[in-house]
Design a protein around this nucleic acid. Structure first.
Lengths: 332, 332
DNA sequence: CTGAAAGCGCTAACAG
DNA sequence: CTGTTAGCGCTTTCAG
């Protein structure tokens, strides 16, 4: 049913290998025969079988993206950057969600490796320590990690200057005259988040306290509710990500606390809804789409490099963030 | 470098075909030899080559999802439903974004077909008329369309009861005593949206007027501003989707109109932010994740069916929507 | 229960 | 410029 090279060969009276060359645009082919072959291919509705090609060449023209959860707008945006870049380069994208479960992640990696993907962009389900790095390296895949990597990691990485972002936050709050602030953090030890804290401390200095809880909208809400049970002893809240900021906002609204009049609120991420909140949320914006683009570019370079038996140096890129001052922060 | 069946065969002194059977869990294999083979496979760090397997079997254990834009939370949620279901069944997911451009969509379809995907879930980039259907059918892929299909379409479909949702809106507003309502609609003729209007009319009857404008947050805001330039002659607004509802809400807030005291507002979609608005938006919720699950289930059934040379009947599913009454609507 | 052999569809030297 | 010849790694009859 499916037409193959053989069919075209028969139809055009040529050898199958000649046809192959015509279609894959190689050198040394007569203009006319090529035109003819291309034409009959079209006529027969030929669709090349990439599996066969992949088996023969060892390349699949497919890359994979493995993230925590595509429903997280951050990853959706990033994924789009990846897909667009891959698409332009003629690569397909296979997507996996790990829920930050190492096991589920590795399950995916295994399946993908077995499908001979040419490379992987990974939002790791845990800290990329030596063990994790080894486990992944065994697959001998070009990978770009969306997080910090080990000093002598074989993987490239792209990440955002979380620490710098944290500094921006501390600075902003200081400038507005705040001296007592609560930081809503996550009890999970995610590098991204701890870096934000570190940066914050660097620029804000003392006068803040950290409250740890579940990294989610609901988690932050609960944390905030508990804080509000006691008399207000802070004038600003820094939530380590926007989704927690939203939870905090809800809790404050419910408690009748005005933002930013009573307390200022600042998040981190600049997810799409941040601008639509009431009040619009001041936050730190990350180049999400661009992160995807850059990661893909690095990966593709790596792939093309390894084709020539030459594996280019590990590349580590850190992208800048910036403060988006909206209405949820004000002078004390 | 990569270990193959041949390596395992050599190592274990068996034939390659025997090894294959052991690993792919076929009948008629000695318990012990299997155990032994499995063990040496693990020891050699064997990763099966799915391309080779796919070439031999004609199946790739991969399905594709092609949507407008994964950044749209609706599709992200749906995609997650697809991925989870596929994952459980041992299928991988390749993702494509079409931006609703037919050409980009077909480009993806082509690449995916060439990769021998086993099936496709498609949010079509246009109305699935006869021509579109034909063009797609040529690929002889099992496909599930996320929209209405032609009467005699070869494709299955999963969609949401937009009309019923519209009815729910009309009914809700009637029950609250509203008699003058403005419907904020889109000037684009999208089936989903027109169905909502139709349903609304069925249950609300007369007493409403439709205002058409750009289908977006900004568009609705502009429409609303214009409406508010004249004296208020309506007590409720139905925006055909949440993003337009948000625009309307902004405009009303800015004009000092209280929602829902002065005018009630109802949207459609229940996007994540709807619950977080101030006031939380009353809207019609669609089963996004479930849509993905159902579409995948239908697709997988189709795939398994066609394996047995039996292609099951086209299946058309319509999922129910429901009203989520929050704080943006009140009695007149 | 296991081995031998053919083949999935394509590419890639190597000859001519 | 084109044909021949081997595979790529795996599954799958068909024998034994």
């Amino acid at each position: 049913m499916k037409t193959t090279l053989r069919d075209i060969a028969r139809e055009s009276g040529l050898d199958i290998s000649t046809v192959s060359r015509c279609l894959s645009g190689a050198y040394g082919i007569n203009k006319d025969t090529r035109a003819m072959v291309v034409e009959t291919a079209r006529k027969l509705n030929y669709i090349p079988n990439s599996l066969a090609r992949g088996l023969a060449t060892g390349l699949s023209r497919t890359i994979a993206l493995l993230v925590n959860d595509i429903r997280n707008p951050y990853y959706a945006e990033l994924a789009r950057g990846v897909e667009d870049t891959a698409f332009e380069a003629g690569f397909d994208l296979v997507l996996g969600n790990s829920d930050l479960k190492w096991e589920r992640q590795m399950h995916h990696v295994h399946a993908m490796a077995s499908k001979q993907i040419d490379g992987l962009i990974l939002n790791p389900a845990g800290v990329m320590g030596a063990k994790a790095t080894d486990e992944l390296a065994r697959y001998r895949l070009p990978v770009v990690v969306l997080a910090a990597t080990e000093r002598k990691s074989p993987f490239s990485s792209v990440r955002v200057d979380n620490r710098g972002g944290g500094r921006l936050v501390g600075q902003h709050l200081r400038e507005l005259g705040h001296t007592k602030v609560v930081v809503l953090g996550s009890n999970l030890k995610q590098r991204n988040l701890t870096e934000r804290l570190k940066g914050f401390e660097e620029s804000f200095g003392s006068g803040y306290r950290v409250v740890l809880g579940e990294n989610s909208h609901a988690g932050a809400k609960a944390m905030m509710e508990e804080l509000l049970a006691a008399p207000l002893d802070f004038s600003a809240v820094f939530a380590v990500n926007d989704s927690m900021a939203i939870g905090a906002l809800e809790a404050m609204k419910f408690a009748g606390i005005l933002v930013p009049q009573d307390v200022s609120l600042i998040g981190f991420d600049d997810i799409p809804i941040a601008a639509l909140l009431d009040p619009p949320l001041t936050t730190i914006a990350q180049p999400k789409y661009e992160t995807g683009v850059v990661a893909t570019e690095i990966l593709l370079a790596k792939i093309r490099g390894s084709g020539k038996e030459y594996v280019p140096a590990v590349e580590n890129r850190e992208l800048d963030v910036h403060l988006v001052a909206r209405k949820s922060t004000a002078t004390r």
